[in-house]
């Protein structure tokens, strides 16, 4: 549960898993921020494929990472959203700041 990260070709891949709520998102946030600050990626990808539940803490997670990536002139992509996670993301109008896709990148990348 949590997040696994991988840095390759100026891209930071973050594979999120488990339940993303206020309780879980704290550790996930610290881990991703640490990686962004150290590697300053051009693109950061948040892959939600293995996320089984998400509430509005997921929106906070995306918004906060967007701000941090912008500081280093990087872009943010969100992918692998389930129907219900997509429903939450849509509420926030996040498609204005990040590229949001339903499908994951895991299979094509590995």
């Amino acid at each position: 549960m949590g997040v696994k990260t991988e840095f390759q070709d100026d891209t930071l891949y973050c594979y999120l898993s488990g339940e993303i709520d206020h309780h879980q998102s704290f550790a996930i946030r610290l881990e991703i921020d640490d990686k962004i600050e150290n590697s300053r990626p051009k693109t950061t990808i948040l892959d939600f494929t293995d996320v089984t539940f998400m509430d509005s803490s997921g929106i906070g997670l995306v918004m906060g990472r967007y701000k941090l990536c912008s500081q280093y002139d990087g872009s943010l992509t969100v992918c692998g959203l389930s129907d219900s996670a997509y429903k939450v993301m849509k509420l926030a109008g996040l498609s204005n700041i990040a590229s949001i896709k339903k499908g994951g990148i895991k299979n094509e990348h590995k």
Binding site: S25, M63, G64, L91, A92
Partner: peptide
């Protein structure tokens, strides 16, 4: 704070 989206009631 900055990592709360302010969307709890909206959700």
């Amino acid at each position: 704070g900055s990592d709360r989206a302010g969307l709890g009631f909206s959700v």
